[in-house]
Each structure stands twice: as structure tokens, then as C-alpha cells.
Design a protein around this nucleic acid. Structure first.
Length: 472
RNA sequence: GGCGGCGUGGCCAAGUGGUAAGGCAAGGGUCUGCAAAACCCUCAUCGUCGGUUCGAUUCCGACCGCCGCCUCCA
């Protein structure tokens, strides 16, 4: 496997730290609001990594955090009243923040299921790991990397030489570049110092600590939880492009100052999902949630094709025609496996099929090993379908072709039964009626029935083996 | 101002120093009662201008355009 590493900005050979096991941490959702399709691009990328490694024969230990404490919204302001997202939303909705967090966490897991994103092995909640965070904070204070300022605790960025290594920023440049934008604070030694612990009596979610009653800063949860579940050094840490700075930069500083070990070997950041050239965000109000897209008629598999069709690091335009295109692609693949390959007559095996299977498996694998080149992987599937269709395989060859498709589907995961509808039996009856009409060459009646079915969103596929139908 | 990314056919999108995968759409065929599906055929010289090179879309420079991070954000 060759993988792009944000730390070096290059594609590098990937090797696991532990024998054949990939330990991967994914920055997860902040559960104060329903995640939108843009958020899921990062999670789909994490899932792609997981599936690709497993396809290639590795074991993967995957951990994704659930941020249920919210982050400071005004981290750099002079007072400690930085409003918490969860709290703000709770106030707005007049609900208990814990209740919102649990509800949205469940919504998130539901959406993952729709998108067929495999569950991580652990979903640690920030609120359940405050002791681990406090332990790290204390350690940072003890080693001089953090300092107390009243009831707040800040990380001293000047104490970590390599701060900025991931994002390419340097403290000097940050100071210069941020002039006028990042206010200096009385209780911070350096404007770039970030909070490890904040105290605020008005804050709903708070915990006792040696530094005062308060809540953890934005970055510490990932350092604490990744260490707990995966160890001091992770093989891979993923996140959206916006996590790179400051979040991941800060994680590196905290973790490495505590453990003295390299924190992450490969940083993997996905590209943006963009609407009309702009990044999609909750703030802009241009988001679509998974349920909204399902409501518009796209299946989870359709959305998977859309998300995985192009390289994970490229910007991905969000446009409905592209979702439609993804659906067409998914339909073609499903049609191939479920229709083209079924009911084939007996015939001698063809060397062409054997060759196509072997070459496709190799091409597909090679594409994934090349920094997760899903475009090339998908192209190998298209090429395979074309070769097989052209060869008009017999029964045994068709079986083997179908087996390969299912084998490769371990990565894309877009095959599978269409969900049964309540009116399946009724449709079957109409289809049978039309077949009868056709056998009697009553074309008028046959076409009328097809029109009726079309109106109900049913597409018919006649063949010598009989008539099949599917929902569009 | 600092850091970073992008610009490939109607649309989406891989990719490489030696004349550009794939998909969607479109047009023309084959097949079909008609369709659908499938198959066949057609459809680009890679933002602009320079440079390096025998040769650049691929390397370097400049420019134009677009976007992101630097503040919560996948």
C-alpha cells in the first residue's frame, strides 16, 4: 500500500507498526446536530481505508470518537464564557445537552448504517473520558508544556518545537498572519496557546478537576482517547481537511509531549465536498442530511458510489446530476450481477472469462494500493463487466464472474437486495398479466400495463429468460 | 499577509516526460412486437504565456481564474 501522508505531503509506502495490524483513529462527529453528507465524506474515507486494508489482508483496529462535550466557540476571547456548541443548541432547543448528544449520536449511527459504513470497533465518548484527559493535562503541566492561568489550563506552544509541522505553519508566521485576527489574551502567554481545560460556572456540562470545575478544551479528547484505545503511536489518523489545523496540530503537540513518542505515522485528510464551488457547511445552510437525500430517492449505495467514485483527496462537487450519475452507475453494476449473469445457458468455460477475472482482480487491487485510487478501481469493474458481457458467458462462467463481483464489492459495498416493497406481490401480478398479454400478442394491453408500472417507478427488463423488474 | 489545493472532452473524473483510463450524457447502429438491458461505432491534445528537454498535459517560472485553512466546522 502506498498512501498519501499529510505530514510529508507525499505518497509513501505504508507499513504497519504492529504485525499486519493497522491501528486507525478517525476524528468523529460532534453530536450537537445532524451530520450532513459533507461530514460523511470524511467518514466514508475512513471506511474506505478500513475496507481496503482488510481487502488487502490486514487486520484493522478502528476507533472513532464521539465528541459530545462540544467545543469552545470563542476559544480566543478574553473571558471563559466561550459558548459550547452543545450548550448553544440546547439553549436554542430548550433541551438538555446530554439528551441532544445521545439523540444525535444515535442519528449518526443510523446514517452510517444507511451509508453502509462499517462500525468502528470503538466509539469512545469524550464525556466518558474526562479522567484520562485530566491525567494528560496534569502530565503536561508537570513537564512544563502547559500552565495554569486562574482556573484555565493552556498548552504552551512555544514548548513544542515541531508545532506547525503538519500544517506547514510556523509560530512566527501564524503570529504575523493572524495579526488583527487573533487577540492576545491576558492569561495566555502566547496567542497560539490553546486551552486544555476551561472553567465556567455557567457551563452546563462540567466536571470537577484539580484546576477547578469546568470542561475539557477542544483538542485533548482525541489525544487521550486515541492513546487509551490504540496506544502511543497510531498507524493512521484521519479527519476532514479542516481538522488539519489547528486540531490535529494541537493533538500532535499534546500527545508527543506526554508520551515522547511519534503520535501518528500517517495523517490522512479527505477533500472537501463543495456546493457550487464553495465548501459545504452547516453554517452556510447548504447542507443535505442522509435522510433528506434518501427522501429524494437515493439509496445508501447510490451515495456510496457518489462518494467513492473519485479520489478521496480531490474536491468533490455536490450536484444532484452527479448523484443521478452515481445512481446510474450503481444500477448498471447491480443489473450486471443480478440480471445479466443470471439464467445463463450451459456452455463451455471460456479462457477469456478466466483471464478477465484474474486481470480485474489484479487491477482492482493495484488501484487500491495506489493511494486508494477508487476511480481506477471502479474503472476496472466497468472494464470487467464489458468483457464479460461481450463474451456472453455460460452458466459456470457467469457464476464465477458474479463471485468476483461480490468479492470486489467488499470495498465499494454497493450490491445487495433492493429493499422489498409492500406492493411487491401486486407488481409481480401486473408483470405476469403483461407477460400473458405479450404471449397473446396483445401489444396494446401489454404496453398499457408497462406504462402503468412505469408510473409506479417500475422498470421492466424483458429477456428470453423471462421478464424481470426493478425500481428505478 | 502566512500556509495549502485546484483548473483534463457537454458533465464528472483517473493519469503519465513520448502524442490522454473510465463513467454519465449525446448521436448512429445491432438486438427487441415496441421498449429496456446488453453489445458495436462516433465524440478532448489536458487554463494562458514562457522555459528546460530530442519530446511536456505531465518538470520549472510567471500570469489568469477558482477554492480551502489561518476562528467552531468532516
Amino acid at each position: 500500500m502506498r498512501l498519501h501522508n499529510s505530514l510529508t505531503g507525499r505518497v509513501e509506502p505504508f507499513e504497519t507498526l504492529h504485525e499486519n495490524e493497522v491501528r486507525m483513529y478517525n476524528c468523529g462527529p460532534t453530536v450537537y446536530k445532524r451530520q450532513h453528507i459533507g461530514n460523511f465524506r470524511a467518514f466514508a474515507t475512513a471506511d474506505l481505508l478500513r475496507r481496503s486494508f482488510e481487502f488487502l489482508g490486514y487486520r484493522v483496529l478502528q476507533v472513532m470518537n464521539i465528541t459530545d462535550v462540544g467545543h469552545l466557540t470563542e476559544d480566543d476571547r478574553a473571558d471563559a464564557s466561550g459558548e459550547d456548541k452543545l450548550q448553544r443548541e440546547a439553549t436554542r432547543r430548550a433541551l438538555d445537552p446530554w439528551e441532544i448528544a445521545r439523540t444525535e449520536e444515535q442519528n449518526f449511527l443510523d446514517d452510517l448504517r444507511v451509508l453502509r459504513i462499517r462500525p468502528a470497533h470503538h466509539y469512545p465518548r469524550a464525556t466518558e473520558h474526562v479522567p484520562e484527559m485530566l491525567e494528560m493535562i496534569q502530565s503536561l503541566i508537570d513537564s512544563g508544556h502547559a500552565y495554569r492561568a486562574g482556573d484555565n489550563v493552556y498548552f504552551d506552544v512555544s514548548s513544542f518545537e515541531r508545532y506547525g509541522a503538519l500544517s506547514g505553519n510556523t509560530l512566527a508566521e501564524l503570529a504575523a498572519g493572524a495579526s488583527g485576527r487573533v487577540e492576545s489574551r491576558d492569561d495566555k502567554r502566547n496567542p497560539q496557546d490553546f486551552a486544555l481545560w476551561k472553567s465556567d460556572p455557567k457551563h452546563i456540562m462540567q466536571w470537577d478537576s484539580p484546576f477547578g470545575r469546568g470542561f475539557p478544551g477542544w483538542h485533548i479528547e482525541c489525544s487521550a482517547m486515541s492513546r487509551k484505545y490504540l496506544g502511543d503511536t497510531l498507524d493512521i489518523h484521519t479527519g476532514g481537511p479542516d481538522n488539519k489545523f489547528p486540531h490535529h496540530e494541537c493533538e500532535i503537540a499534546q500527545s508527543e509531549c506526554v508520551t515522547g513518542e511519534p503520535f501518528v505515522r500517517f495523517w490522512v485528510h479527505s477533500g472537501w465536498l463543495e456546493i457550487a464551488g464553495e465548501k459545504m457547511s452547516k453554517r452556510a445552510g447548504t447542507l443535505f442530511t442522509v435522510p433528506e437525500l434518501v427522501e429524494r430517492g437515493y439509496t445508501g449505495a447510490d451515495l456510496r458510489v457518489y462518494l467513492l467514485k473519485q479520489h478521496y483527496r480531490s474536491p468533490l462537487p455536490f450536484e444532484f446530476p452527479l448523484l443521478d450519475e452515481a445512481r446510474r452507475i450503481r444500477q448498471r453494476i447491480a443489473n450486471f450481477v443480478e440480471h445479466e449473469l443470471s439464467g445463463r445457458p450451459a456452455a463451455p468455460d471460456q479462457a477469456e472469462i478466466s483471464q478477465a477475472i484474474e486481470e480485474t482482480r489484479n487491477d482492482f487491487r493495484a488501484a487500491l494500493e495506489d493511494d486508494l485510487n477508487t476511480s481506477a478501481a471502479l474503472a476496472s469493474i466497468h472494464a470487467f463487466m464489458n468483457r464479460v458481457n461481450r463474451a456472453a458467458p455460460g452458466h459456470a462462467d457467469a457464476e464465477r464472474a458474479g463471485a468476483l463481483m461480490r468479492e470486489l464489492d467488499a470495498v465499494f459495498d454497493i450490491l445487495g437486495e433492493e429493499e422489498a416493497g409492500a406492493d411487491d406481490a401486486q407488481i409481480d401480478a401486473l408483470v405476469a398479466e403483461r407477460d400473458t398479454a405479450r404471449s397473446e400478442k396483445d401489444w396494446e394491453r401489454a404496453d398499457a400495463l408497462r406504462d402503468e408500472l412505469t408510473q409506479r417507478g417500475i422498470e421492466l427488463l424483458d429477456s428470453p429468460q423471462g421478464t424481470r423488474w426493478r425500481r428505478r
